[in-house]
Computed example of a mutant assay.
Amino acid sequence: MLVRIVKMSFEPSKIEEFLANFETVKEKIRNFEGCQFLELYRDQNNTNIFFTYSYWSSEDDLNNYRHSELFKGVWAKTKPMFNGKPEAWSVDKLASLK
């Protein structure tokens, strides 16, 4: 399993638009083949910074999503709202406690 973390910083005036768009696409992303989990986080202090956290069955599944029409559409709407360069990490989970 691959864990994907994406950090995004938005123009403050675009946050509501981003959240509305995420609301419309989150189920499609979560139900994309290979996506097992999806969450959106917002920084408590810098409220224009958001993170997505997702689990993928494999790197191939993540890459299939990243090359899909769904991703291209989401990214085309989201990218102009940024006020900083997004950052992304693919990581391996080493420990998980509940």
Rank of each mutant, 00 (worst) to 15 (best):
P80D: 12
W75I: 04
K72P: 05
S68A: 01
K77M: 12
G34D: 02
F50E: 01
F51E: 10
D92W: 10
D43I: 12
W56S: 01
F37H: 14
L38F: 10
K72W: 08
F32T: 06
Y65Q: 07
Y65E: 02
T47Q: 15
W89E: 10
L38G: 09
Q36W: 13
S57D: 14
A76P: 12
T52A: 07
F37E: 13
K79R: 15
F32V: 01
R42S: 13
L40F: 06
F82C: 04
E59R: 07
L94M: 13
N83C: 14
K93N: 05
K77V: 02
V91H: 03
V91E: 11
L70F: 03
K85P: 00
S57H: 08
L40W: 08
N64Y: 05
D92H: 13
R66W: 06
Q36V: 05
S54T: 05
N83W: 02
E39R: 15
W75M: 12
N64K: 11
P80M: 06
H67R: 12
L38D: 12
S90A: 05
R42E: 09
M81E: 06
I49P: 10
T78Q: 08
F82N: 02
M81A: 03
A76H: 13
N64W: 03
N83S: 14
D60H: 11
N48R: 06
Y53W: 14
D60K: 10
E33C: 06
W56A: 02
D43R: 14
F51I: 11
D92V: 11
D61C: 04
W89D: 01
F32Y: 09
E59T: 04
E69V: 13
T47P: 07
L62K: 02
S57M: 04
W56N: 02
F71G: 04
S58R: 02
S90P: 00
L94E: 14
I49F: 11
S58L: 00
W89P: 00
Q44M: 11
A88R: 05
N83M: 03
P86C: 06
M81C: 04
T47V: 13
N46K: 14
F82M: 13
G84V: 00
Q36S: 09
W89V: 11
S57C: 08
K85I: 12
L70Q: 06
N45F: 09
W89N: 02
G73F: 01
D61T: 03
L38I: 15
N48G: 02
E39S: 15
